[in-house]
Amino acid sequence: MELSFVIEKFILVTIVFIVSLVVAMYSTLAERKIAGFMQDRYGPDRAGIFGLLQPLCDGGKFFFKEEIIPSGAHKTLFIIGPTIAIITACISSAVIPWGQELTIGERVISLQVADVNVGILYMFGVIALGVYGIMLGGWASNNKFSLMGAIRAASQSISYEIAMGLSIIALLMVTQSLSLKDIVAQQSGFVNWNIWVQPLGFIIFIVCAFAECNRVPFDLPECETELVGGYHTEYSSMKLGLYMFSEYINMFVSSALMASLYFGGYNFPFMNDLGLSPNWITILGVLAFFLKIFAFIFFFMWIRWTLPRFRYDQLMKLGWKMLIPLAIANIVLTGVITVLKDLYF
């Protein structure tokens, strides 16, 4: 491995890391601003213009608060819990193709950290690993409410992972590849986006993404009326901050995943008819990709202030009795259509 390659990847990883942290930071502000907008009030506007420094203040506050580890808690696992949560949130963005290639002088730089040939499955594995962070944290707190919250979170994400995986299988039948790079490259232009061939799959996927990120209407793991604070009841200061941060990073990554699987990733309409140089197309593509991601993040927040939450048995019923059969039907339908298309067209 040559040195320049290592340096190039290192810079790319650093940029991706910083961008996901900054997006997560400003998601907290955006959430409160959008909440304010939807409820006809201002939202935070004291720190900086438009409250732009609010996330920094929140971060500072998290760092300076007293850190409490309950005496009955299992100390090691209590610390490992939020660590796993933030690590899994950060490493899942490694396989997302942020753009096409940039050519600087002689070098061709791919804007994807790692082109793993089983990219989607890697994402699933990392998401599945994220459950451990919540479960360990909840159990190590030695608190009934934390344990109940952790168990709710884990069973919820396991249940919805099944439907999510099944909806992806239908997509893979169309794309014929597990590599995210190939899947995005296939969707160039506008008419080739996978949303046009997999609308049902996308709806199942986005519902499952909401459940995986523990967002409203599936935010059962934290519930003030029943469980105090859910799995992070006993957590304070930056450990709580890490849990919340990992949630926002997960939201960012799942938005990026949805944009690249179904909405063409860095592809935008008429990209090949503009007559621009490849570098400019790449830069515009990255911008288009981020526009899509922000649209999805906005959608996450919009739903939060629109829908009331489910009851837990309703959540399980929706996952097991509606989404999984629908996803299987989608697979069968996709298979039949693919075969018919091969035979007659």
């Binding site: 594995g125 459950v131 451990y132 069973s155």
Partner: peptide
């Protein structure tokens, strides 16, 4: 490798832990 990761670590062991 990835399937071992998802199925054993991500699902079965979580249920055990549960």
């Amino acid at each position: 490798a990835v399937v071992n990761f998802i199925v054993y670590m991500g699902a079965i062991m979580v249920l055990f832990l549960f």
